[in-house]
Amino acid sequence: MTRVNLLTGFLGSGKTTTLLHLLANKPENENWAVLVNEFGEIGIDGALLANRGATLKEIPGGCMCCVNGLPMQVGLNMLLKQNKPDRLLIEPTGLGHPRQLLSMLSAEVYQPWLQLNATITLLDARQLGDARVVANENFRDQLVAADIIVGNKSDRWHESDRLALQRWQEQFLQGRPFVTTQFGQISLSLLDTPRGSPRPIPQPEHHHHAPAPASGIAALRLEGQSRWRRALNEGQGYAACGWIFDSETVFDTIPLLEWARLAPVDRVKGVLRIADGTVSINRQGEDLHIETYASAPVDSRVEMIHSQSSNWNELQSALLKCRLR
């Protein structure tokens, strides 16, 4: 049977970083697969997680639990049939609701094939001080559905964050395991924790915000001779704008990083080609993390998410000025 874990957490809680840590420590004799979903259609996580020793399937363009879970079922069935993984890690979008996804994974049709283990939910204690995040139904219900809660990014917490976390634990933890870490560095042993007793999870109020991509499970690609293109997405109180550039486009590193750092948006993620290879950008609020690699990416991708629609044309104009060629 394929051992399955759901890895959830609100926007910017560190899900992809945690996945990268887990994949870096994967036992060599095991066949792993990752099913990842993103709010936008660009497919940043797919670029970040590619060539990490696991089979990867992407479901871009919104919540994988919506539209009766059809894109999710297609991606899941393909992985099980073609790859027969020993372990499957599923990362829904930070704006995704866990109820329908957990219901699907525990359905009778999958019981001969899947062993559904603990749902692991990441929580940045600073989120508890953001009224907009705390009021979000997906944030609340992700924590309700969790079997294990990981307090991530503890190196960035202030005393007020720790006090807010303590108050939250006293009211909502309800005896569940709580692990504190940073940079998503959790033990692989957590993945084999059995699923806890199912807790009542509220029915999500949101509806799918856009039609599923035509392919159902494919990230955005360039068409014909296009050098770049843009994709917009809205729903659940958030808006996303992403760009994809061809493999020949090279960005000037310093102006690009300044563009990402100063953009008036909540979230920036990207994997882009620079003169020295590749830079990955991950910004949540004022937290900016960058990494560089010597190898060049297949193409360049960057996406922004904000709690309201932004002036995407202005941000796009500034981004295009960051190109060397």
Rank of each mutant, 00 (worst) to 15 (best):
L320E: 10
G224D: 03
Q111R: 13
H207T: 12
H208G: 15
R323P: 12
A214G: 06
M1L: 11
G175C: 09
Q100D: 15
T119M: 00
D147S: 03
W243M: 00
R199S: 08
K26R: 08
A50S: 07
I290P: 00
H206N: 10
R132P: 15
E291W: 08
Q111H: 13
D147M: 08
L315A: 08
G14W: 10
S160Q: 11
I244Y: 00
L220D: 00
M78Q: 02
R3W: 11
T18Q: 08
F10Q: 10
S160P: 06
A54G: 04
P297K: 04
L76C: 04
I44R: 01
P177F: 06
D124S: 07
A294S: 05
R156C: 11
F178T: 06
S13F: 12
G196Q: 09
S154I: 03
L23I: 06
F139G: 04
T2G: 07
G224C: 01
S13Q: 11
T253M: 06
A131G: 03
R273M: 05
K81W: 02
A263F: 06
E58R: 01
H306I: 07
L22M: 07
E108V: 15
I42T: 11
G277T: 01
N31P: 00
R261E: 03
I59W: 05
V109F: 15
P27D: 09
L70G: 10
N25W: 10
Q73H: 14
E28D: 05
E41K: 01
A218D: 01
D147T: 12
E303C: 03
Q111K: 12
D276S: 14
N138H: 11
F251P: 02
L257K: 13
S247P: 04
V144Q: 04
